[in-house]
Design a protein around this nucleic acid. Sequence first.
DNA 1: AAGTGGTCTAGACCACAGG
DNA 2: CTGTGGTCTAGACCACTTT
Lengths: 248, 248
Amino acid sequence: MVLNTAIRRTQTVAAQLDGILRERIRDGQYAPGQRLPSEAELTAEFGVSRATVRTVLTRLTAEGLLLRKQGDGTYVNKNIRDATTHIGGLWEFQRVIESCGFQASLRLVDLHQRMANLAEQEELGLLEERTVISLERVFLANERPVVLAENILLSELFHRNIDEKLATLPLRNLLHDLCSEDIAYAMISIHAHLLTASEAKHFDGYRQVGDALLRIDQTFYNARHEPLAVGSSVVDDQYLQLRMVQAW
Amino acid sequence: MVLNTAIRRTQTVAAQLDGILRERIRDGQYAPGQRLPSEAELTAEFGVSRATVRTVLTRLTAEGLLLRKQGDGTYVNKNIRDATTHIGGLWEFQRVIESCGFQASLRLVDLHQRMANLAEQEELGLLEERTVISLERVFLANERPVVLAENILLSELFHRNIDEKLATLPLRNLLHDLCSEDIAYAMISIHAHLLTASEAKHFDGYRQVGDALLRIDQTFYNARHEPLAVGSSVVDDQYLQLRMVQAW
DNA sequence: AAGTGGTCTAGACCACAGG
DNA sequence: CTGTGGTCTAGACCACTTT
């Protein structure tokens, strides 16, 4: 089997192989604890070089899906089953919810323009007051609210008005589609947080004022180190387990 | 400049290059926002292949230290300055404390053997009751308590008695030196946590009963998927900032 | 001894950004 | 157009584990 022959080159060879191996792991063709074919065998099966095989295996190993033992072989991580997010994807809640096995949905709470407060000016690297768009949303898992997220975006990034339909997009897509800006990296900090009354309202009674939840603060940058947006998200860590695998 | 010529091969070429580049970034020889030499130039300077240069640059990029732009160049991340931990090292508190710029120290709270409770049996994959070693320690940053950590280890792993001197070792070293066991990966979950009275005592008055802190639960496995130890750590997230960079 | 993953090299072609 | 990083190949040698 050779990847991408004569067909269209829509993905890289490594990306295709990555997808195939993940699928085999998910399907149980490579079962938890089982040994994978050796690099040489994968090289032969897919008709790619060993270097390509290794870049893929290295990535899957870093995510904790695989375990490699020199002189022995590559094994599927037995304990991956209940890991809901690999360390890293901590700010794509829609994904986190889905990989927890829930149905993800989104509820718009508020969308308006206002002046940035001091903390936001600081985070966004503003020297003066500017108007920002405040986008407040609730992420639901199986119809139950699990994340209350407020994102602050610079108004001037938007050439056209943002309508409510677009408020259902993940932040990455929103910035990409409406602002032609791509997130290059994010700074993230995690804190414990006591739920306030106004926040508690959005949790439909599942969580109360004074409950301890997680708060994840994020600042998103483009490749020119310019801050694009900030986010502050309150996460119900009881229901939406943030379990992660960390290799080595 | 060629790495490891005629000298001893104590580290891999990539590891040496990794160290050198990190040092240059730390020293400001490669200043924040500045462009690094191209891959070709680094290849020439260090006398290594481009593939080796790239494995190192890829790792530094993944940690958020560098930013790479196709067709342009490789840049030092401007916002790395206040990132205290790259996502990943979330369970080596000594390191986290030091990379926050604090002096790290350790205080032994308790060390005793007892029977594992049900939750611990579950986590350690035990089918019956076993004795475990409970190791409770406080990590201090500049003499101020910031982490209260309890580790549970299987008694049977220890061939000789664990003395108090060894209780000052990081868990990884402790397992390696005393049990000849190496941690291959860990499952981690993060929760918000309300401080109990008995826990609050160890924070020297800096935090009170009922304060909301972070709790990081960990299970450590060896390469054979056998659980080696569990840990439950309460972290003062106000003082010990868990700021992380996440690339792309 | 044989087979595995770990490291490294040399060279090729491509996609993209800048002058 | 030139130089940059992105992808991929083919092949070599090493370190380790298993038999």
